[in-house]
Design a protein around this nucleic acid. Sequence first.
DNA 1: TGAAACGATTACAATATGGTAACATAAAAA
DNA 2: TTTTTATGTTACCATATTGTAATCGTTTCA
Lengths: 224, 224
Amino acid sequence: MSKHTILIIEDEEDLLELLEYHLQKEGYETLGFLSTKNVEKCLEEERVDMLIVDRNLPGAEGSEFVASLRKKGLNQAVIFVTAKNSDMNIEEGFLRGGDDYVTKPYNMKELLLRIKAILARTVPEKNTLLLYRDLSLDLEAHLLHVDSLAVELTKLEFDLLRTLIENKNSVLSRNFLLENVWKNEEFFQDKTVNVAINRLKSKIDPTKEKEYIKSIWGVGYTLC
Amino acid sequence: MSKHTILIIEDEEDLLELLEYHLQKEGYETLGFLSTKNVEKCLEEERVDMLIVDRNLPGAEGSEFVASLRKKGLNQAVIFVTAKNSDMNIEEGFLRGGDDYVTKPYNMKELLLRIKAILARTVPEKNTLLLYRDLSLDLEAHLLHVDSLAVELTKLEFDLLRTLIENKNSVLSRNFLLENVWKNEEFFQDKTVNVAINRLKSKIDPTKEKEYIKSIWGVGYTLC
DNA sequence: TGAAACGATTACAATATGGTAACATAAAAA
DNA sequence: TTTTTATGTTACCATATTGTAATCGTTTCA
């Protein structure tokens, strides 16, 4: 799963760095800005999941800036950060399209928790993609793309390829595969695996140019 | 548009009344409880859009109660209200499925703003249509338009199509559908789904030209 | 080098799964 | 009440999938 990206506008350089440090430690991508300059362009070019905006910015008021972005279709969640904490200002922030409001000095742990809670609500969960070379297996949609070209697999072939990718650094014995893909190793024979592997190979690589699956003599199969 | 309904669990009776008063003044329906007793039953029977929960409840810990509800499938947003404000407790609240955390004594205006912001994110707008290709599902009016032509669906067919559209990027197993559309997966058989899908298909695409619904052999159904 | 063991490939048959129509029953409408 | 509608079940047929066996090719090792 790819990382969430958080765009931050904060004019105090030290604070921006500190915030970016903590967010990156939590596994987020960050895009830091010291002013609203270039932010719009960045939003057009990058996929951004959330914004953290200081209201006190040089030359612009953070919540007004966000309000103008909202008018242009910004849909991502926004957390306002500010030293101001009078009722009036909090209200303005929410009315101009804020999703949360944190006042300085803020507790970093709390801010991180708020970010996490809001992202959980606003960013739709990505489908789990299993990747291997130019293969991309979408477990939800039950879809395989080979070099971004859709290829149809049967349930057995799909499960087999998934097991191979999930264990891409091991050689899988026929017994292991019978246990994990067929679920009943005693009922079938080793040859069954051979044939299934073969069918899978011919679907994901009909011209036999790419050699995804290698057989290890006397041991089993593995991705190579 | 119908009112949003907010369920409140707060053991201080005065505070509960005050909160209900303000929420009602803002146009919300409220369901007040002095303890966790009967809350589960109420959630089963009433449509609730959000919960406000005090963490300090007689005989139960609010966030533990919410965590247990989440396990049973509660999906609505929860705001915790509490006098506690140590980091540790805020963290617990978020980890147990809270969407926001407000400490007493709280500013009523701010709480109302937070409620509004969260509802805007979590409750799908009633008037929005669910769209898929030339299908348009109006959840309020319980109406389907196919290429702007009205088509009548039964409740079951409607729920089925809604579930398919809401999960348009996933293959849905018959069990998933029995759970989510029929609500009682154990009572019915897989074939029931086949027949229902079939009836739905013939209503939305009687000439079988458009192929909205695809069956994935051995897995389930999906929109294509 | 040659035999044995193992893997690849192909064809075929059995099985599992899905589609469809007909029927039965329960719920809603008239 | 009678009639209509909705929906679960069953039966039967069509088709996709997949195990098996037969055959051919390749590797291993004496």
